[in-house]
Design a protein around this nucleic acid. Structure first.
Lengths: 128, 128, 128, 128
DNA sequence: GTGGTCTAGACCACA
DNA sequence: GTGGTCTAGACCACA
């Protein structure tokens, strides 16, 4: 499957799972209204307790990535509605990074140049 | 003093304190070999358990921001020695940000432009 | 038909169906002694498990909105007989709303004014 | 204490608890920055599993009624920030009530009058 | 002591 | 079968 967890990762298991699924939904790997694996199925596959999967799923739903239908399962939501918010959050992260860079004596221009250069392969890779 | 903690902040108190002090040392507000406030003094000032301050200080020392002299307290280290490592870490963070941006459909170019524009004030502000 | 279900709705499907049908009967869209669609027909139309429709119908009957003739199906009941009870229930709901409003610092007078104003269009709309 | 649960209530235990605490915070019975009982303490008091209390508390935090400090406990938030949202929600409920009333042949005017009359005692009682 | 995470296992309503 | 709720019990970081 498309998900795996890393027990050495300091992030809690449920967050590893929810953020990975969120990414798959954003990328369109899981399309709107497509069902996610059932709580039990994913629990078996990852050898993780169903309660932990349940928590991951409830986080996803609360963040707008999915909607759940009791007795039927969880489904990917239309991400269009949450994209603006997520982008806003990203720019806030970018602001923090800039501040941190300034503290280390790295100017915004240096960072911008780094982004144009290094970032290119990442973007090309993902959007090819 | 120049430090304050936010109980609503999700980061643990010791980390809020250590990162704030690290910043002050990087900025030169606390200069090399300048003594940091004693554990007890800072504990009283912030109304925080001394153990928490102690932990913040040991993190700082372990990261190379300070050195301690037994019986005399903690002192700011010469940051020149750790700057390269910190800068490297920052660029790794930048890489992660780029990947995340790509997922949201934001190209490296857009981000670079944002950095040139918005970042300017932050840099000017901090280095004026 | 006049019924549709929303899988994103947190209410169970059977309840969405029964409450919608109850509304149609109250409004007189479905008149007394008029047959409701057969369980099977509605199940096919809505692409829903017949058991779910069955449950919705049994709820309706139990609440007095319909009566069933074995082998012939369900029929709309005369709503006159249940109107007083339903009205009573509504006023109880209104009491709860008032209490909740008070907690939020909204006085009964404010709410009454809101009802006179905003409620007008809804009423006119429905009873024109 | 100020909280109790009803096992015959169809609402889940965690919701009974969270909504009751939310009400106490809105009413100012629990003032901003006042600590809520610890998860364990409330669990013992209500003879309910700590996990269930934990869930109630996390719901409260997610809705903005409280903030939690790991290792210290949960505290009432300043409700000013959520009041507008809650009021908005109440007016939406009022709209639904109006629609339902219209279906039952009760006009907005009747409801408004009922509110002015019956609501008076409730309001006076709560705000005296 | 306090919240947060996780496992194991059970029961329920809904479909 | 599927999600949702709840109990019991354990371990961890933080304060």
């Amino acid at each position: 499957m498309l998900i795996d967890v890393d027990f050495r990762d300091k992030r809690p298991l449920y967050e590893q799972i929810s953020s990975k699924l969120a990414e798959l939904i954003l990328q369109g790997v899981i399309i709107p209204d497509e069902p996610l694996p059932s709580v039990r199925a994913l629990a078996v596959e990852l050898s993780i307790n169903p309660n932990t999967i349940q928590k991951a799923y409830s986080v996803l739903e609360q963040q707008g990535y999915t909607y759940s239908v009791s007795g039927r399962g969880s489904f990917a939501a239309n991400v269009e509605s949450i994209l603006p918010k997520k982008r806003e959050e990203l720019y806030k992260e970018a602001d923090l990074l800039l501040k941190k860079a300034a503290t280390l004596g790295i100017s915004n221009k240096e960072l911008a140049e780094y982004f144009e250069k290094t970032g290119k392969e990442i973007w090309d890779d993902r959007n090819s």
